[in-house]
């Protein structure tokens, strides 16, 4: 089967969405498909120009393939008779972010017509797709609420599961991923004082120097500099995997995130329990208190309690980690299954 993956391009930016795109193409080929990906440059300011962005997408033409898998607005508007959407996200500034007052679309008559145009174009794209998948339940709920379309959840799997076989705990709690205010690694640093003997490793790129500075300052204030390792940079994949494989448990507590999070999946793949918070969003779709990790209120005290429990009972931690891995496997969060669904 010949497959084209379509997405958008913001030149010189390479993040999670781009990784997913690359791995989708790679895994399509691994599963025996002839696959290629193409990404259309996308520029969303000023909002008026969104009309041109959608107009151009509607007038591109794809041929020479059997199926198109489209990932993002407005690339998913490119017409094709056999099109599957794997919605990572819509143009949220026309929907939930608009409601939250965080949109670049003006609130005047001109903005009204832009919104109307986006909704009309979205409806066309959704209607002409043979199947819509979303990366997380919340994305699907938004799609239903704002656009009235049904979808199925298809979570992006781990790109390199073979790097996370797990291993013996070396007794530290690990926090990976981007470091910033929303990811709230600072809560963990604050919590550490309450759990004597436990070590914390934070390894991941800070969004800005200020984000790194905050963690250093709190570690000093809390007097836990000797028990905290702050490796704040783009950690090479192999090293990151090593850190995960040797952790006691992984803490991932973003504020209201859509998806499970790669950090969560890496942890469970390596059979490590996950500590998260009640307001973390999509993480809670898989992490269950007491079964494969701990779900606590987002306070240093509550987090300290969770960390202490793992620290005090490492065997239990190991069991919960294995339960986490089983939960991932039960959901078949792997690339071959994902590809199978996308090309069926």
């Amino acid at each position: 089967m010949k497959v084209l993956v379509l997405s958008t391009l913001v030149p010189f930016v390479h993040g999670g969405a781009e990784e997913l795109y690359d791995h989708l193409v790679l895994n399509l080929r691994r599963q025996g498909m002839e696959a290629e990906g193409m990404r259309i440059p996308f520029y969303w300011n000023p909002a008026e120009e969104l009309i041109e962005e959608m107009l151009l997408a509607r007038n591109l033409r794809v041929s020479g393939v059997d199926r198109v898998i489209a990932l993002k607005f407005p690339a998913y508007m490119v017409p094709f008779p056999d099109k599957v959407l794997w919605l990572l996200h819509q143009y949220r500034q026309a929907y939930d972010l608009l409601d939250a007052g965080q949109s670049n679309i003006p609130g005047d008559a001109s903005g009204e017509r832009i919104l109307h145009a986006i909704r009309a174009a979205d409806a066309m794209a959704f209607r002409e797709s043979r199947q819509i998948y979303t990366n997380a339940p919340i994305t699907g709920r938004r799609l239903k609420h704002y656009n009235g379309f049904d979808s199925q959840v298809l979570r992006p799997p781990l790109n390199d599961p073979e790097l996370f076989p797990g291993g013996e705990s070396e007794g530290y709690i690990l926090a990976t991923g981007r470091v910033n205010d929303t990811k709230r690694q600072h809560l963990l640093v604050r919590a550490l004082r309450r759990v004597p003997g436990l070590r914390l490793v934070v390894a991941g790129p800070p969004d800005s120097p200020a984000d790194a500075e905050v963690l250093h300052r709190i570690a000093a204030q809390e007097g836990v500099e000797d028990r905290v390792t702050l490796d704040l940079r783009f950690v090479p994949r192999a090293h990151l995997a090593q850190l995960v494989n040797g952790a006691l448990g992984v803490a991932y507590l973003p504020f209201d995130e859509d998806s499970l999070g790669y950090c969560t999946m890496e942890a469970f793949r390596a059979a490590k329990p996950v500590i998260t918070t009640t307001d973390s969003g999509g993480v809670l779709d898989i992490v269950r208190e007491g079964e494969n990790g701990h779900v606590v209120p987002p306070s240093p005290e509550a987090l300290a309690g969770a960390m202490a429990r793992l620290h005090a009972a490492p065997a239990r931690a190991r069991d919960m980690g294995l339960a986490g891995r089983a939960a991932m496997e039960a959901q078949r969060l792997d690339w071959p299954t994902t590809i199978e669904r996308l090309v069926s």
């Binding site: 379509l6 391009l9 193409m38 990404r39 259309i40 151009l56 007038n59 033409r61 794809v62």
Partner: peptide, 19 residues
């Protein structure tokens, strides 16, 4: 930047406009 393109004659001009 890879732009998908279909060389069917009747489709060329709208795609050029899109480009």
């Amino acid at each position: 930047v890879w732009l998908p393109f279909d060389a069917t004659p009747g489709e060329v001009l709208p795609q050029m406009a899109a480009f």
